[in-house]
Computed example of a mutant assay.
Amino acid sequence: MRIGIVCPYSFDVPGGVQNHIVDLAEALIGLGHEVSVLAPADEDSPLPSYVVPAGRSVPFPYNGSVARITFGPVSTARVRRWLSRGQFDVLHVHEPFVLSLSLLAVLSARGPVVATFHTAMTRSRALAVAQGMLQLVLERITARIAVSALARKLQVEHLDGGAVEIPNGVAVAKFADAEPLPGWPGPCGPGQGGTLGFLGRFTETRKGFGVLRDAFVALAPERPGLRLLVAGPGDQADLYEGVPPELRDRITFLGRVSEEDKARMLRSVDLYVAPNIGGESFGMILTEAMAAGATVVASDLDAFRRVLDGGRAGEIFPTGDAQALRGTLARLLDDPVRRAELSACAQEVVAAFDWPTVARRVLEVYATAIEATDGRVLDEEWIGPT
């Protein structure tokens, strides 16, 4: 099958949607399909061979963050050329309501269109204002996918329709087989050592790093070997805000890391902490940490609770409560049996998120979209070997 996938966000800046698209494309290619991905990116950017750059992007505030997108007549022309050359059996766009390539691709498409919605926006004012344009986009979408129950809720409550819920995937083997960073995680004994991990934009309030930092500052004096490993974009000076000077050498900052080093980082911690305080529709980093074998500690967000099977595959603490997080961390660091139990359950849960499994579910939606538009039915070999 010839599959065209469109990403609205720039490949020059890493992000969850971009990573999702890369992993999906590679899983589909592994199942024997021909895939082309169109995304904002500079012409000279280092990109996978299946990614077609659509030009430089511009920053745009979106969902509590800043997205880098591209739009306008030049972008429209590039989208149309790509569609014409690709002659795709199905077009798969991500976040089609973002003012970028996905929206342009939907409006230019002539065949079956599948749309994946990643964001769980519950407020409908912006959607109501743009209802006319959104309706035009929706009428051209053949089938919808939502990566979480919250993202699906948006479809049902505000967009007059449903969506197939298919979670983000994770390349389980890549994380499980990664080598830890040299010297990590180190000893973890009662009352002393242990390594905590955090990955993300720690300067973004909704990521909740301040909650973890406060818990670390309260716990570290009681545990001389406790360390915190942080990766992600941001200024190191901001990382140490509110941390006493005598504790700063126990925080290691890796900065922005590659996908390979992200896997190694997650293999280097005893507890991966997700202290986010809102704005999450799924929790991709949780599945990656689970695949890497880390014990997960996450705030009590609905999306996180679903990924962790209600707390069976990881510990959940009250959102925004640094003192409660401190107690949870201390208890788990002193209890290797409990950590092992959680990790074992996490391995069972994360198997359902492995990309080959997720990709086959996406292919089933493609089949439905193709059949709905012109009667073509996906042959068994198109779905790939089981």
Rank of each mutant, 00 (worst) to 15 (best):
residue 139 E to P: 02
residue 140 R to A: 08
residue 141 I to A: 05
residue 141 I to C: 08
residue 142 T to A: 00
residue 142 T to M: 01
residue 142 T to E: 00
residue 142 T to F: 05
residue 143 A to P: 03
residue 143 A to W: 11
residue 143 A to R: 11
residue 143 A to K: 10
residue 145 I to L: 03
residue 145 I to Q: 00
residue 145 I to H: 01
residue 146 A to P: 02
residue 146 A to K: 07
residue 147 V to E: 05
residue 147 V to M: 05
residue 148 S to F: 05
residue 148 S to N: 01
residue 148 S to D: 04
residue 149 A to I: 10
residue 149 A to H: 08
residue 149 A to P: 06
residue 149 A to R: 10
residue 150 L to N: 10
residue 150 L to R: 09
residue 150 L to Q: 14
residue 150 L to I: 11
residue 151 A to G: 12
residue 151 A to Y: 10
residue 151 A to K: 07
residue 152 R to F: 01
residue 152 R to D: 07
residue 153 K to N: 00
residue 153 K to F: 03
residue 153 K to G: 03
residue 153 K to S: 06
residue 153 K to R: 02
residue 153 K to D: 04
residue 155 Q to P: 05
residue 155 Q to M: 12
residue 155 Q to A: 07
residue 155 Q to H: 03
residue 155 Q to E: 11
residue 157 E to T: 10
residue 157 E to H: 06
residue 158 H to W: 00
residue 158 H to M: 00
residue 158 H to T: 00
residue 159 L to V: 08
residue 159 L to H: 09
residue 160 D to Q: 13
residue 161 G to R: 08
residue 161 G to D: 13
residue 162 G to C: 03
residue 162 G to Y: 09
residue 162 G to S: 13
residue 163 A to M: 04
residue 163 A to R: 07
residue 163 A to H: 05
residue 164 V to I: 14
residue 164 V to D: 13
residue 165 E to A: 00
residue 165 E to S: 03
residue 165 E to N: 01
residue 166 I to L: 02
residue 166 I to Q: 04
residue 167 P to F: 09
residue 168 N to A: 07
residue 168 N to E: 07
residue 168 N to Q: 04
residue 168 N to L: 10
residue 169 G to N: 03
residue 169 G to M: 11
residue 169 G to T: 08
residue 169 G to F: 08
residue 170 V to N: 01
residue 170 V to L: 11
residue 170 V to H: 01
residue 170 V to R: 05
residue 171 A to S: 06
residue 171 A to T: 08
residue 171 A to Y: 01
residue 171 A to M: 00
residue 172 V to C: 01
residue 174 K to T: 15
residue 174 K to M: 15
residue 175 F to N: 11
residue 175 F to L: 07
residue 175 F to P: 06
residue 176 A to F: 12
residue 176 A to Y: 13
residue 176 A to C: 14
residue 177 D to Q: 14
residue 177 D to H: 14
residue 177 D to I: 07
residue 177 D to Y: 07
residue 177 D to L: 14
residue 177 D to R: 14
residue 178 A to Q: 10
residue 178 A to I: 13
residue 178 A to Y: 10
residue 179 E to C: 15
residue 179 E to N: 14
residue 179 E to K: 15
residue 180 P to C: 03
residue 181 L to F: 10
residue 181 L to R: 07
residue 182 P to T: 04
residue 183 G to V: 12
residue 183 G to Y: 09
residue 183 G to N: 09
residue 184 W to P: 03
residue 184 W to A: 04
residue 184 W to V: 04
residue 185 P to L: 15
residue 186 G to I: 09
residue 187 P to N: 09
residue 187 P to Q: 09
residue 187 P to E: 15
residue 189 G to E: 14
residue 189 G to M: 13
residue 191 G to H: 12
residue 191 G to L: 15
residue 191 G to Y: 15
residue 192 Q to H: 07
residue 192 Q to A: 12
residue 194 G to M: 01
residue 194 G to S: 01
residue 195 T to V: 12
residue 196 L to R: 03
residue 196 L to Q: 04
residue 196 L to C: 06
residue 196 L to D: 06
residue 196 L to V: 11
residue 197 G to F: 02
residue 197 G to Y: 00
residue 198 F to R: 00
residue 199 L to I: 13
residue 199 L to D: 02
